[in-house]
């Protein structure tokens, strides 16, 4: 049985056994797949797994607009699973209403996404492959350079192309604040492009510093190809190295950013690697 046939069967079974009222996945209704909620087991033959298509935010929206006892199954990848964990941890929906059928990504997909953990905690479909270190990628290395001047130069050039579509925010599974800081006149000037590097892009990045699951939704949605996900790498590494914390992997533990630092395991607090950016002359 192929992977996609296995997925169809698992979705069909979940529906037939009454485990869920619907399964969110991709469907090939015509020639190309797009998101679909399967509620009829007979339709699951249309279910598809490719391409990578983030569904976590959609799942949250569906749970919010459905009746309270509606249970949703979702076929999702590791990044989506971690995003769903973050959302439920932040009380965006009741995790008991969600049934995750986890899909492991291929090594090739991990390379495209620059993904360090291309699999969910519990794998129902596919086989676990090794993660891909973003620093192995030539383009990514420019944005993660150890030299702050080089790094700033690349980021400034890329971000000057921003057309302010808000796609990075709209497609981010974790960006759910109401109201959004990007719509606050105190921070972001309306009607101007490019959106400001500091007040738009860095506020957005810092807002996600302890929740970003590195799904790459922001990068995928960017019409001008800014590698936005890489803005989070340094912060994710800092949380991992200093606190042993990774967003979306632990349903119980609170983010260290929300703690008072005394109860957290904080070995001699190290200066995070990205602080040197603040010492750069910004007049590039």
């Amino acid at each position: 049985m192929s992977l996609v046939e296995d997925a169809r069967l698992k979705a069909k079974n979940a529906l037939e056994e009454g485990l869920v009222d619907g399964v969110l996945a991709l469907a090939r209704v015509e020639d190309e797949p797009y998101p679909y909620v399967f509620e009829d087991a007979a339709e699951t033959g249309m279910l598809e797994l490719e391409p990578k298509w983030l569904l976590a935010k959609l799942a949250m929206n569906i749970l919010r607009s459905s009746r309270q006892d509606y249970r949703l199954g979702i076929i999702c990848r590791g990044c989506d699973e971690r995003a769903l964990n973050e959302l439920s941890k932040r009380n965006q929906f009741d995790p008991a209403r969600l049934h995750v059928i986890g899909l492991a990504c291929s090594a090739e997909q991990a390379r495209i996404c620059l993904c360090t953990k291309p699999y969910p905690a519990s794998i129902a479909l596919g086989e676990k492959s090794e993660g891909f270190d973003p620093r192995e990628d030539e383009r990514a290395r420019m944005f993660l350079s150890d030299d702050p001047g080089t790094r700033m130069q690349h980021w400034a050039a890329e971000l000057s192309r921003c057309i302010k579509c808000y796609g990075c925010r709209n497609s981010c599974p974790i960006c759910v604040c109401e109201p959004c800081k990007l719509e606050d006149d105190l921070w972001v000037r309306r009607g101007e492009i490019p959106a400001d590097m500091v007040s738009y892009h860095l506020i957005r990045a810092f807002h996600l510093s302890d929740t970003c699951v590195a799904c790459g939704g922001c990068t995928d949605a960017c019409p001008v190809n800014i590698p936005l996900m890489l803005l989070q790498v340094a912060m994710r590494e800092t949380l991992a190295n200093n606190y042993g914390y990774e967003a979306g992997t632990d349903l119980e533990r609170l983010s260290p950013v929300l703690s008072d630092l005394t109860i957290e395991p904080c070995p001699p607090l190290m200066e995070p690697g990205w602080l040197d950016s603040l010492k750069v002359n910004h007049e590039t």
Binding site: D220, A221, P223
Partner: peptide
């Protein structure tokens, strides 16, 4: 929602 398989938009949209 963006359409990742659209030949022109390729999963992106403007404001």
């Amino acid at each position: 929602l963006p359409d990742r398989k659209h030949p022109v938009a390729k999963g992106t949209l403007c404001i």
